[in-house]
């Protein structure tokens, strides 16, 4: 055996070890949350409202979906229409400016987005801690993602298909709504699903925009909202066993939600 072969073998061994090690940690993290979650969760938790120390997490589950829903309603239309402008009308310079600004949004730490949501939406616009403030703050985070993926999907519509439509007398809007968007549909749906999964797992943006509610919010503004990640955070920081159980139950629901959304999106992409 010469030294070259030994080096090659050691590198291979190291590589395999690290791959297995990383996968083991992934399994440990998800596994521990799933197992603890399964031990903690009860049917009662799923159907009762609670306050992170007693009761259930029904209000948090509903609140999470409401917040994500507002985020999607905010980000998807803006993302799609911006992408349409960029692909169909935008000139190079303008497009790269939008690109830089969306990159800035993507790179902004979530707690800074939360602070902005607080200063702008909660205080300046007077939404208070609410669905609208929390949801839009989530939406701001989702927006660059939706925009970018839609832009790519629209760019990928084959030229010969676009020309076919144009040669049949399609006006710009026929082209966009009857050809480009249907062709980009899968990309848009996948990115929306992934945006939902990202939004459902966010916490820092919501701390000072959504607040907490022991029930279901009764209005879009000035009515606070409960959400699952808050239960995880607050629950594990409290001494009682039951709080920990609520935290793990919420963790279980979060991880199942996020992973299933990812699998669905991978399936759609096929």
């Amino acid at each position: 055996m010469n030294i070259r072969v030994i080096k090659d073998f050691s590198f291979k061994l190291l590589g395999y070890f690290l791959i297995l090690f990383i996968i083991a940690i992934l399994v440990a993290i998800t596994g521990s949350i799933i197992i603890n979650g399964l031990h903690s969760i009860t049917l009662k938790m799923l159907i009762e409202n609670g306050d992170t120390t007693s009761g259930g997490i029904f209000n948090a589950i509903v609140g999470t979906w409401m917040l994500v829903g507002v985020g999607i309603l905010f980000s998807v239309p803006i993302g799609i229409f911006s992408a349409i402008f960029i692909v169909e009308y935008g000139w190079k310079r303008y497009n790269s400016i939008v690109r830089v600004f969306t990159d800035v949004l993507t790179s902004t730490p979530s707690i800074v987005l939360g602070l902005f949501g607080y200063l702008f939406l909660v205080i300046q616009l007077g939404f208070g801690y609410s669905l609208l403030a929390g949801g839009i703050t989530l939406g701001i985070m989702m927006l660059p993602y939706i925009l970018r993926v839609t832009e790519i999907s629209l760019t990928e519509v084959p030229t010969n298909i676009k020309e076919a439509a144009i040669s049949l007398g399609a006006k710009k809007m026929d082209l966009i709504f009857r050809i480009m968007l249907p062709y980009a549909k899968n990309g848009i749906i996948t990115s929306t699903i992934l945006a939902i999964s990202i939004g459902a797992g966010e916490t820092a943006q919501l701390l000072y925009t959504a607040g907490w509610n022991n029930g279901i919010p009764n209005s879009l503004i000035k009515s606070q909202v409960a959400y699952l990640t808050y239960v995880v955070w607050a629950g594990i920081n409290q001494p009682s066993n039951y709080s920990h159980q609520l935290a793990f139950a919420s963790g279980l629901i979060l991880i199942i939600t996020v992973f299933s959304l990812i699998f669905i999106s991978k399936y759609i992409k096929r």
């Binding site: 993290i29 979530s110 990202i198 966010e202 995880v232 963790g251 992973f259 990812i262």
Partner: peptide, 9 residues
Amino acid sequence: AIPSVLYGL
């Protein structure tokens, strides 16, 4: 894709 709080947990 794992939410931050779950890493924390």
